[in-house]
């Protein structure tokens, strides 16, 4: 007697790994671009006057306060509606990158601001130019100071990447969703997925704690 449902088997490994891989790749892309843009925007905010800051802050507040799931749906629907449908991966990467940029720029801004004016003057007095002071002094000191907070944002981006499933991206959560409908074994699968997220995130947070401890000395 054939069943409508086929139980989970080793044949599903490839399918699951694709989901894992897609989660990893979109997280890496979003964290990478988010960090790069975040450093730039954070630096601009640390350096600019109140007017520019208020404007930039307002824009960033939108990214930070509108729920990610709504941003994803709005963006991919709108882009599709104006006739430029994007691959779920591309649309998801763009939204997730901007979302993480909005949080990371605040982190980096506070890092840049933590480097005292007197430290910069000391560097300039040695003959360093404005840009040398930024690259050799402010950037490395500021980035180190906020590494633990940066890592916190990065970890939450990994978890938030699950939401990209709503626009059809085959990441870990969506993969498991499909497996669940086929196998009707939600408990095993969701526990498995949880463990995978844990395996991706935990080493990072351990590393963060290690670095934090090392810097506190």
């Amino acid at each position: 007697m054939g069943s409508l449902f086929t139980p989970l088997s080793w044949n599903d490994t490839g399918f699951i790994l694709t989901g894992v891989w897609n989660t990893v790749i979109i997280s890496v892309v979003a964290i990478g671009f988010g960090t790069l843009l975040g450093v730039i925007v954070g630096f601009i905010r640390a350096e600019s006057n109140r007017l520019v800051n208020t404007l930039l802050g307002g824009i960033l507040d939108i990214f930070r306060s509108v729920p990610l799931i709504i941003q994803l749906i709005l963006f991919s629907t709108y882009i599709g509606a104006i006739g430029h449908p994007l691959e779920p991966f591309v649309a998801g990467s763009i939204v997730l990158s901007l979302y993480s940029m909005a949080f990371m720029s605040e982190v980096f801004r506070s890092g840049f601001e933590s480097v005292h004016k007197s430290m910069q003057i000391a560097a300039r007095s040695l003959g360093m130019s404005y840009w040398q002071t930024i690259f050799y002094i402010r950037l490395p000191i500021g980035l180190r100071a906020v590494f633990p907070s940066w890592l916190g944002v990065a970890l939450s981006v990994i978890k938030d990447s699950a939401l990209v499933s709503v626009i059809g991206y085959m990441e870990l959560l969506r993969t498991s969703d499909q497996l669940i409908s086929r196998t009707q074994q939600p408990l095993e699968i969701l526990i498995g997925v949880g463990i995978f997220y844990f395996i991706i995130s935990y080493p990072l947070s351990l590393y963060g704690r290690y670095v934090e401890r090392k810097m506190a000395l």
């Binding site: 003057i121 000391a122 300039r124 007095s125 040695l126 003959g127």
Partner: peptide, 11 residues
């Protein structure tokens, strides 16, 4: 920037 190379400063 060049001039400051002639003048060391300690704070």
């Amino acid at each position: 920037d060049k001039l400051r190379q002639k003048l060391g400063m300690v704070f």
